[in-house]
């Protein structure tokens, strides 16, 4: 599903040049659950941003389902993203002014899904995440675990082929963290490909494979299953 080869990304400020990704190459097959691990600053988040089409690589190739997407323009990237990719963040990133229902509804709005269908799909996914009873609450009124469930609901509401999770349990206690990991595992079992950046060895054990990174390169790949 994803094949990156010699991917490069460098950040420049006036004085410093930081190489975030250094000729990185790997492949992720459809239905895989892959963890990306490594120390802070090794390029994990940069990788996730490029995989999520939020950022451009400076060089190399990025094939998504066989299509080269490394140099897509903004419109094409946004289109590919909203149809195929869901995001889960460490800090949940819910919009404070919108209710639970409205937050989850957002991707469907940008997909152009009509109102009644939106309502039905949002309700299905809220039900699945067991937060239906909180549908009219605002994010500030929810616990961290509930907020992350909403974020996961938002990530999956458009039935993406790929979910990118950036330390999804980083802001949660262990029981809430386990719940979220279980949700991701369930989604993976239903066929969704998941790439998760994490510091937690515990969480990484939910995945099929761990890619370890250092200084913008992969150092090892552990196959867990």
């Amino acid at each position: 599903m994803i094949k990156i080869s010699d991917l490069q990304k460098t950040y420049r400020t006036e004085e410093v040049e930081t190489i975030a990704l250094n000729k990185l190459s790997f492949e992720v097959k459809e239905g895989e659950f892959v963890s990306v691990m490594g120390p802070s600053g090794c390029g994990k988040s940069t990788l996730l941003n490029i995989l999520g089409l939020l950022d451009d690589p400076d060089g190399g190739s990025f094939l998504f389902n066989g299509t080269e997407v490394a140099h897509f323009n903004e419109r094409k990237r946004a289109d590919l993203r909203k149809r195929n990719i869901g995001f889960v963040f460490q800090s949940f990133n819910l919009i404070d002014e919108l209710t639970v229902f409205e937050n989850v509804e957002l991707p469907l709005i940008y997909l152009g899904v009509k109102g009644p269908e939106r309502k039905q799909r949002v309700e299905v996914v809220l039900d699945k995440m067991q937060i239906m009873h909180r549908r009219n609450h605002y994010p500030q009124q929810l616990s961290g675990g509930q907020q992350q469930r909403v974020a996961v609901a938002r990530a999956v509401v458009n039935n993406p082929k790929l979910i990118l999770a950036d330390e999804p349990t980083g802001n949660l206690d262990s029981s809430n963290g386990n719940e979220v990991m279980q949700l991701l595992t369930d989604l993976n079992e239903q066929g969704t490909t998941i790439i998760m950046v994490t510091h937690s060895e515990h969480d990484s054990r939910y995945s099929h494979r761990i890619i370890r990174m250092l200084d913008g390169q992969t150092v090892t790949e552990n196959i867990l299953i």
Partner: peptide, 16 residues
Amino acid sequence: AKEIGIRKVSGALRTE
């Protein structure tokens, strides 16, 4: 800023 980030992640174009 956060709201805009989320909207973009959710598929919003700059024009939107």
